[in-house]
Amino acid sequence: MSNKVLNKTSSVPIASALRRGGIRGGAKIQSALLRALVYLAAGLTFGALICLILYILIKGIPNLSLDLFSPTYNTENVSLFPALVNTITMTLLSLIIAVPLGVFSAIYLVEYAKRGNKIVGLVRITTETLQGIPSIVYGLFGFLLFVTTFSWGYSLLAGALTLVIMILPVIMRTTEEALKSVPDSYREGSFGLGAGRLRTVFKIVLPSAVPGILSGVVLSVGRIVGETAALIYTAGTVAQVPPNLLGSGRTMAVHMYALWSEGLNTEQSYATAVVLLLIVVLLNAASGALAKKITLK
């Protein structure tokens, strides 16, 4: 009862919030309980991560064999090597298109667009939308546009172009942030020395923003490597390295999905999971190192 009265008279929100449970008495138990819950949640989160990694490593490493890396796939060796090659091709192809596109659009947004430009607002909204679209919707779109409308069939090119749209917002956003963090004095100094806007952007601003841009690139490589749903119906699931970019080929993640849907090769799935996991860990370490470089500056 007294608590209620105090609440009504108190105008300080913090104080009233503190009184709600009574300062003495239950407070100690409540604090201990909250503390226990926080520790439990943290334990569960990082426990799950450790469990997952250890499980995949312990089950997967014994299944890594030379057979898995033989140059061609057949039902005997279930080689993941073609998938590995396709993953690398897919990554390079997507990056070659997406990085210039993303970096240039970020340059436009940060260096060229004037305040209150209508296009900027629209670009912001659309990139936010793109970031939320599930990968299966991208996959379906890529299927409808590239595979059927352009009649390329299932192909690496169709897959890569689908991925370009997917990673574009990531590269744009990280580049934008990197460009914004370049101090204005750099630009002013360059303008003061008589350089034009274009020269300033390419000679002064971009070089200082490189680590930030790279960390975005690494992030998108991670997404490409792990992507499955967007690729099944664009790049297809053929387990070989195609002769050219218009041929179908599965990446590592798709390979793993295909192994599951065939339902036969559990050991090879474990091994593929290990390789995927290793790639992701390496990429994360690289992006972390790059991020550190930015903050040190």
């Binding site: 210039p100 596109l101 993303g102 240039f104 659009s105 436009y108 991208y138 744009m172």
Partner: peptide
């Protein structure tokens, strides 16, 4: 640069239209 910035607008428009 302007064209590149418009690619994401184009992408969203295309996705909507096709779906």
């Amino acid at each position: 640069f302007l064209f590149c910035a418009c690619v994401s607008i184009l992408a969203v428009a295309l996705i909507c239209v096709f779906l």
